[in-house]
Design a protein around this nucleic acid. Structure first.
Length: 285
DNA sequence: CTTACGGCCTGGGTGC
DNA sequence: TGCACCCAGGCCGTAA
C-alpha cells in the first residue's frame, strides 16, 4: 500500500523525467475516481510540468500554462491502495486497470493504473475549491520534537489512531504505524495522553528511522505497489510486525499478535509493547 | 469539541 | 467450477 515512503519513491522517480515536459494529450478509461474528468482532459494539454512533490500521501504534479503568467495548476494524485504511476513508451501494452494515459512531448507516456480505484485524481487551481492538502497534518519527517509532542500528548485517542489520522500526521498508514510502534515499544492501543515524555521522544525517532529506512529501500511492496520505474520496493523484507502475527518477535522471541485497534488490524509484540492499563469502570472509594 | 464505530467503495485472494 | 467472505485507506454519517 502506498504510504509516505512509497509515494516519496514514486515522486523521486518522476522528478528525473517529468519536469520540463509538456503535456500533449490526455486519454481516460474509467473516471469514477477522478473529481472532474472533463477538466483533466480540457486543462492539461499544452501545460508544462514544472515540478513533482509529495504532501503526505498525495503526489503533486505542478503545471504551468504555455503563456507567461498563466494560472498555475496542479495535478493531485492519491494512490489509494493500488494506484501505480509510471512512465513508459506508448507502445508498451497497458496492463488491465490502466485508466489514465498522458502523452508527453518527449514521446513517452505517463500512466495511472489502479486496480481497485481507491485512489483519487484531481486538478487543483485557484477556482476548484479548497485543496485537500490544506487539511493535512505534520509531515512526520519534518515535525520537530515539540510539534510531535503537541500532537500526541494530551490527546485521548489511541496512539495508533493518531498516527493514522492524516490531519494529525500526514503520510503514515497501517504498515508504518505498526512498524514504528514496535520500534518504539509502544502498544498501539495506548492513549496519546498516557504516553510519557520519553515514550513520545522514542516514538518520534522510531517513526523517522522506519520511514527513512523504508525510503532507502524504495518502499514496501505488499500488494500492488511499484515505483515510477515499475519496480517493487524491498522494505517488506524488513517488516518486524506487519502481517507477521504468529511469528516470533525479532527482539524478544515472543509471538507477534494481531488485534483490531482504531478499527484497523494492528500487529504488535505483546512482550515488547505492553498494553494499556485496563481502566476500571469504578474503582472503590 | 473530541473520539468511536459502522458502512461504503472495489476486486484479488482465500477457503469451502 | 463457483461463490461467499474478508480485507485494505479514506471518508462520511451518527452516536456518545
Amino acid at each position: 500500500m502506498p504510504e509516505l515512503p512509497e509515494v516519496e519513491t514514486v515522486v523521486r522517480g518522476l522528478q528525473g523525467v517529468l519536469p520540463g515536459r509538456r503535456i500533449l494529450s490526455v486519454r481516460l478509461g474509467k473516471t469514477d475516481f477522478i473529481d472532474d474528468p472533463d477538466a483533466l482532459e480540457r486543462e492539461l494539454p499544452g501545460t508544462y510540468i514544472t515540478s513533482v512533490q509529495r504532501h503526505g500521501k498525495f503526489l503533486v504534479v505542478n503545471l504551468e500554462g504555455a503563456a507567461q503568467g498563466n494560472a498555475k495548476l496542479a495535478l493531485l494524485i492519491h494512490l489509494g491502495m493500488t494506484g501505480q504511476l509510471t512512465t513508459c513508451a506508448p507502445e508498451f501494452p497497458a496492463p488491465l486497470h490502466t485508466h489514465v494515459f498522458i502523452s508527453l512531448d518527449d514521446g513517452r507516456e505517463l500512466r495511472y493504473r489502479d486496480i481497485r480505484r481507491f485512489g483519487r485524481i484531481r486538478v487543483q487551481s485557484n477556482r476548484t475549491g479548497p485543496s485537500p492538502l490544506a487539511a493535512l497534518g505534520l509531515d512526520p519527517l519534518e515535525a520537530t520534537a515539540g510539534e510531535f509532542r503537541a500532537q500526541v500528548g494530551g490527546r485521548r485517542a489511541r496512539v495508533k489512531a493518531l498516527l493514522l489520522d492524516q490531519r494529525v500526521f500526514s503520510g503514515m498508514g497501517n504498515i508504518y504505524a505498526d512498524e514504528s510502534l514496535w520500534r518504539a515499544r509502544i502498544h498501539p492501543a495506548r492513549l496519546g495522553a498516557n504516553l510519557s515524555a520519553a515514550e513520545i521522544v522514542r516514538l518520534r525517532s522510531a517513526v523517522r528511522h522506519v520511514l527513512e529506512e523504508a525510503i532507502r529501500l524504495k518502499g514496501s511492496s505488499v500488494s500492488d505497489y511499484v515505483g515510477a520505474d515499475g519496480l517493487p520496493g524491498e522494505f517488506q523484507l524488513r517488516h518486524r510486525v506487519y502481517k507477521r502475527q504468529g511469528k516470533k518477535c525479532s527482539r524478544c522471541g515472543a509471538t507477534i499478535r494481531r488485534m483490531i485497534v482504531a478499527g484497523r488490524s494492528s500487529h504488535f509484540c505483546p512482550q515488547c509493547q505492553r498494553g494499556p492499563r485496563k481502566t476500571k469502570a469504578k474503582a472503590s472509594n
